[in-house]
């Protein structure tokens, strides 16, 4: 019985002491709650700022560069397939060979157009494009047609010896 008031007094004293100390220091530094709020605010600001900087600047540039590389390789693969589709010399030929193209580049479809002895890749994004010349034997008289990505893309070779025509067909 006598112990309890003594404890109470000491704790009360401790509490009083603590509040007195806090009062002393309040002028010198911030309280824990305010500091935590500042920390949270700082971290949120940091994350927001970094995300903005990355997604507005660095990330689209890298995506464009990767898309350009994919387009280069797809176009080179398509040109090689066209060149390999020419059959050996024969009286009359009709060949159909199907070709695999990536469905989208940089999230959107594209077209591969054959014109004037070249194949060209058309894409909505201006930094993604390419154009390659075709190396075909003299028997090939013409190359024409368009491939749309996502469609069933086929090379159709037809004609007689000396006048082969290659068409890029999208079905």
């Amino acid at each position: 019985m006598t112990g309890r008031p003594r404890v109470d007094a000491s704790t009360r004293r401790r509490r009083v002491d603590a509040s007195a100390r806090d009062g002393d220091v309040r002028d010198r530094a911030v309280t824990p709650i305010v500091s935590k709020t500042l920390e949270i605010g700082l971290v949120v600001l940091f994350v927001g700022g970094l995300s903005t900087a990355l997604f507005a600047g660095a990330v689209p540039d890298y995506r464009d560069a990767a898309a350009d590389r994919v387009a280069d390789r797809s176009l080179a693969g398509a040109a090689t397939e066209i060149e390999n589709a020419v059959p050996p010399r024969a009286a009359s030929v009709r060949v159909e060979r199907s070709v695999d193209l990536p469905a989208t580049i940089r999230g959107s479809g594209y077209r591969i157009v054959a014109v004037d002895g070249r194949v060209r890749l058309d894409h909505p994004n201006p930094s993604v494009d390419g154009s390659l010349r075709l190396a075909l034997p003299e028997r090939v008289a013409s190359v024409s047609g368009t491939w749309r990505s996502g469609a069933e893309t086929v090379i159709a070779v037809a004609g007689e010896d000396g006048r082969l025509s290659i068409r890029l067909v999208s079905r």
Partner: peptide
């Protein structure tokens, strides 16, 4: 009897300042 506490800073306020500085360094 409350002897006047030695004027050493409250550890909790130490926490506040050191935390902020450490956080800034970590973000850098």
């Amino acid at each position: 009897m409350t002897r006047s506490a030695p004027r050493r800073s409250d550890p909790s306020s130490d926490r506040g300042q050191a935390n902020l500085a450490a956080l800034v360094v970590a973000l850098i």
